[in-house]
Simulated scan of single mutants.
Amino acid sequence: MSKFNPQTDIPSLTGKVAIVTGGNRGIGYHITLELARHGATVYLAARSESAAKDAIRQMDEELEAAARGRVKFLHLDLSTIKGAKSSAEHFLTLEGQLDILVHNAAVLGHNYGLNSEGIEDTMATNHLAPFAFTQVVLPLLEKTSKSADVRVVALSSYMYKKAPKGGKLLTVEEINDALGPPASINTLSSMQLRYSRSKLANLLFTRHLQEHFKSIGSTALAISVNPGDVATESVLDFVRPLPLIGGLAAWALKAYMFTPAQGAYTALFAATSPTVRENVDTYGGSYLIPFGKVETFVGDGANDELVTQFWDASARIVDGVLSS
Rank of each mutant, 00 (worst) to 15 (best):
H208N: 15
F205R: 03
I100H: 06
E173I: 07
D77V: 01
A220I: 09
L98K: 00
T296Q: 15
S156K: 11
D77L: 03
Q58E: 14
A252R: 08
L170S: 00
S12N: 11
P182G: 11
N226D: 15
G118I: 07
S147G: 13
G118E: 08
L128H: 10
G113H: 11
L203Q: 02
L94D: 01
I317H: 05
N126Y: 01
L94S: 06
Y160N: 12
N176D: 10
E211R: 15
D300V: 12
H212A: 11
T122W: 11
Q192D: 10
A163V: 08
R207Y: 08
A220Y: 12
V107P: 07
G28F: 02
S324R: 14
L35T: 00
A315R: 15
A313N: 10
L209H: 06
S215F: 08
D177A: 10
G118D: 08
Q262K: 13
A255I: 03
Y43E: 01
I216W: 11
L169H: 04
G166E: 13
P274N: 04
G263T: 03
V321H: 02
P274L: 10
H38V: 04
I223W: 05
E117H: 04
N303S: 11
A105L: 09
R316P: 05
A261C: 00
G292V: 03
E49W: 01
G96C: 00
A163P: 09
F291L: 02
F269L: 12
T8D: 09
L140D: 06
Y160Q: 09
I31D: 06
F4M: 05
F131N: 01
L170N: 03
V276Q: 02
N24T: 10
I175H: 11
K293P: 00
S79Y: 02
G23H: 07
K162F: 14
A302T: 06
L78R: 03
E62I: 01
S198D: 08
F291V: 05
L78A: 04
L92N: 00
I27F: 11
S190M: 04
N202G: 09
V318I: 12
S189I: 14
P130S: 00
H75F: 12
V42E: 04
S48L: 08
A55W: 04
K16L: 12
A55Y: 03
N202T: 12
A67M: 07
A154D: 09
G217A: 09
V136L: 01
K162S: 14
K254G: 13
R47L: 06
S196Y: 14
V20Q: 06
T41P: 04
N115G: 13
L193H: 02
V152W: 10
V230P: 10
A45G: 05
E295M: 13
Y265C: 03
F213C: 09
P243K: 12
V239W: 10
